[in-house]
Nucleic acid binder design. Structure first.
Length: 217
DNA sequence: CTTGTAACCCCGTTACATCA
DNA sequence: ATGATGTAACGGGGTTACAA
């Protein structure tokens, strides 16, 4: 019997979505959370005849594992022809080979998930640091802006005292200066108001980010 | 077209071996 | 002796191919 299309499909799906159980399976399991699972009866406890022999054969030899690993390295899926051949070669039941491949795929998937998690974590930490840096920069710029505003105020006051030849000159000077400062930026950070968020918000967030990183790195 | 079955898959769990 | 960890094996539920 040929199951290649299905196997290829499943391989494709599991490579695309290695973290996800098939949707239908998730639904089925969710729906059956109350159904009691059938417990497997204990065996090979030595109470029944022949059990101890089965115990001794349980662990695969290093040689067997090597060959299985080699095959797994070539291809994670196992067609029945290859399974039978391998089983013959290893002196194992084909069912054992199939089970080994299933378990190996599960281990491989877990490892991939761990790697992915680790990469995401690193990237998240880098983003937090960058956020922190940008917030610090914003604070600096706000300081500069506030200094500039004070300077404007000073100029305005001195302009009031010193009569100018052209009445609009100080104003045009101001507006010229203001043009160098992006108005939306100026407005967004409410330099006049200096709300609490400007002084404390980003800084504390930044501290939290750093503490967070120190905690988890 | 429908139904039953075999063979495969994955997921979660269990049982057992090994090691610190 | 024992708890933690790794892994072989299993049970259940899903899909697909195929025959009747």
């Amino acid at each position: 019997m040929n199951h290649r299309p299905f196997q290829d499909h499943m391989m494709f799906i599991s490579q695309l979505y290695p973290a996800d159980a098939p949707y239908t399976q998730i639904i089925a399991q969710q729906g059956e959370s109350k159904k009691p699972k059938r417990r497997r009866s204990k065996k090979n406890k030595g109470g029944e005849n022949g059990a101890s022999e089965a115990n001794k054969k349980r662990k695969l030899s290093a040689e067997q594992v090597n060959l299985l690993e080699q095959n797994f390295g070539n291809e994670h899926k196992l067609e029945s022809e290859r399974k039978d051949k391998l089983a013959l070669e290893l002196g194992l039941d084909p069912r054992q080979v199939a089970v080994w491949f299933q378990n190996r795929r599960a281990r491989w998937k877990n490892k991939k998930l761990e790697e992915e998690y680790s990469n995401l974590k690193k990237s998240h930490e880098a983003t937090l640091l960058e956020k922190c840096r940008l917030e610090t920069e914003v604070l600096k710029l706000k300081d500069q802006l506030s200094e500039a505003a004070k300077e404007i105020q000073r100029l305005r006051e001195s302009g009031d005292r010193v009569p100018s030849n052209s009445p609009s000159s100080s104003q045009s000077q101001q507006s010229q200066y203001m043009e160098t400062v992006d108005p939306p930026f100026y407005g967004v950070f409410g330099v006049d108001g200096y709300d609490d968020d400007v002084l404390y918000g980003p800084e504390t967030q930044c501290m939290n980010a750093l503490e967070w990183i120190n905690l988890y790195v």
